[in-house]
Design a protein around this nucleic acid. Structure first.
Lengths: 207, 207
DNA sequence: TGTAGCATGTAAGCCGTTACATGATTGA
DNA sequence: TCAATCATGTAACGGCTTACATGCTACA
C-alpha cells in the first residue's frame, strides 16, 4: 500500500463528483463541474477533465465503459471504483484542507483606488455588483434544483454557504460605496486632475 | 489598444505596492505582500517577487537603485517610474477585473460529506473555524496599523471588506454546524462501527 | 558561536489554461 | 444545410511553487 503523494485536489474533486449518481461521461462531468465546483473551487477545462479521468483510470480509481449511443458513436462513461471510494475517504480524512484561497481582482483594484478617480472606482464596484447578482442567480438555480433531495444534502449545504457569501459580498460592497466620496460613476471623466500624492509617513510592514 | 498583452495580474499587484511609500527592496515587498495582498490575492513566493521586479525593470515600469547598507552589503531598492504609474493606471482603467476566484478546500470537502461520518465533518468545520479566527486576528492587526492614515484609505477599505468576509464565513459555518446532525466532533470515532472500512483501533496511520 | 533575519537569486517542475484538431448527431 | 451540442483528445506554454544555493549582519 505504498501511497505516492496525493493527487492534486482537482483530481479528488472530479472523483468526488462521481460519488453522486451514476456513470458520467467526461462531457457530463464538465457540466456538473460548471454548475457546482465552479462556485467554490474551479471549473476545470474540458481538456483537464479528460486528463484527470485518464489518470484516475490508470490508478484504478475509476472504471470506464464504452457505451454506444448511435451507430458510429461511442461515449466513455466513468464510475468510481471501490478502490477510488476508499482513496477518496482516505484523502478526506487524512489531508489538511488548508485555508481558502481568494483571488479577488476587484479588491485588488480597490486597494489601488488612489490611482483612479472616484467615479472610476464607483463604476468598477457597481459592475462587480451586477456580476455578483448574476452569479447569485446561477447558484440559486443550482440550489433549487437539488434542495430537499436527500441525495444532495451536502451539496445543498455548500450551495447555501455560497449564497450567504454572495450576500455578504453585496453588503460589503454597499459599505464601501457609502464610505467613498460622492460623485456618480457617470462623472467618471470629470476629475482626472493633479499628479500623484507626495506621500510621506513610513508605516512599514506591520510585523 | 491591447497590442502588447497585459502582464499577469500579480505583476501589477507588485507594481501597485510600490505606489504607496517609497523605494522598497524585494524583501520588503514580500513582507508587504504577506501582510496585505495575501488576504485577497496571493502572497507570491520570494523568488517570484524577484522575477517580477526584474521584468518590471526591464520594461521600465520600475527604477532600481543600489543602496549600500554596510561594508559588503548592498540592497537593491525599487520605485515606480512615471511610465510604470501610467501603465498601472491604464491597466486599472482598461482591463476587465473579472469575477473573484475562490478555492475553498473546506467547502469542497463538505460537498463530499456523505463519504464521512458526521463527527469528521464537524471536526473539519471546527478546525476551519479556528483557522478563520486566527486569520481574522491577523487582518485586524493590519487594519489597526493603517486605519486613520489617509495615505492608506483604500487599503483600509479593503481590509474592512476582508474582515466582513471572515465574519460572514464564521456565520455561515455556524449555520452549517446547526443543520448537521448532532454528534460532537469528539465522538468522531464512535460512529465508526457501521460497515465502513477497517482502520479500527487508531494505530495505523493511513499514509 | 550559532541562529534568526536580511537579501538575492537559479532550476525544476506541477497545475492548469488556451489553441488546435477531429468528428458525429440533432434540430431549425 | 448549417449551427449548436455532444464527445474526445494533443501540444504548447504561462504562472507560480518548491527546492536549492549563497552570503552578510545582528544579537543572544
Amino acid at each position: 500500500m505504498r501511497q505516492e503523494r496525493d493527487l492534486p485536489t482537482t483530481s479528488y474533486a472530479v472523483l468526488g463528483l462521481l460519488t453522486f449518481g451514476q456513470e458520467l461521461s467526461g462531457y457530463e462531468l464538465k457540466q456538473w463541474a460548471d454548475s457546482t465546483l465552479r462556485f467554490y473551487w474551479t471549473a476545470p477545462a474540458m481538456s483537464q477533465i479528460y486528463t484527470e479521468l485518464k489518470r484516475l483510470a490508470q490508478r484504478g480509481l475509476v472504471l470506464s465503459r464504452e457505451v454506444g449511443g448511435g451507430p458510429g458513436r461511442t461515449t466513455t462513461r466513468y464510475r468510481v471504483s471501490a478502490k477510488g471510494a476508499r482513496e477518496l475517504r482516505r484523502w478526506l480524512a487524512d489531508s489538511d484542507p488548508g485555508f481558502p484561497l481568494l483571488k479577488h481582482p476587484v479588491a485588488l483594484r480597490l486597494l489601488l483606488g488612489h490611482l483612479l478617480d472616484p467615479g472610476q472606482v464607483r463604476a468598477m464596484l457597481e459592475a462587480y455588483d451586477q456580476a455578483l447578482a448574476a452569479q447569485r442567480r446561477d447558484l440559486r438555480a443550482v440550489l433549487d434544483g437539488i434542495d430537499n433531495d436527500p441525495a444532495f444534502e451536502f451539496p445543498a449545504h455548500v450551495a447555501r454557504w455560497g449564497l450567504s457569501y454572495y450576500d455578504s459580498e453585496e453588503a460589503a460592497l454597499r459599505q464601501v460605496l457609502n464610505a467613498l466620496p460622492e460623485g456618480s460613476a457617470a462623472q467618471s471623466r470629470a476629475a482626472q486632475g493633479t499628479g500623484q500624492t507626495g506621500r510621506s509617513s513610513g508605516a512599514g510592514p506591520t510585523r
